[in-house]
Amino acid sequence: MRNCRDITLLISKELDNESTLSERFAVGLHVLMCSRCRNFQTQSKFISKAAHRFTEQLEDQSEKKL
């Protein structure tokens, strides 16, 4: 069985669309039972979204300064 450290690494890979089908399956099964890893998954997606938003804001702000 994979532990939470392994699973969170796979979650991270999955976010970058680089995990295999069996890895995604392992993640799906694990997060059904593990709320901490489920939170990590949701929150990592949120962080990606925040990072993109941060860049957009940076572009907007610097445009306004011109």
Partner: peptide, 13 residues
């Protein structure tokens, strides 16, 4: 490989 103190749920991210 278990969480020390794992992620808790976030309120309205």
């Amino acid at each position: 490989g278990e969480w020390h103190s794992g992620p808790s749920a976030w309120n309205d991210p």
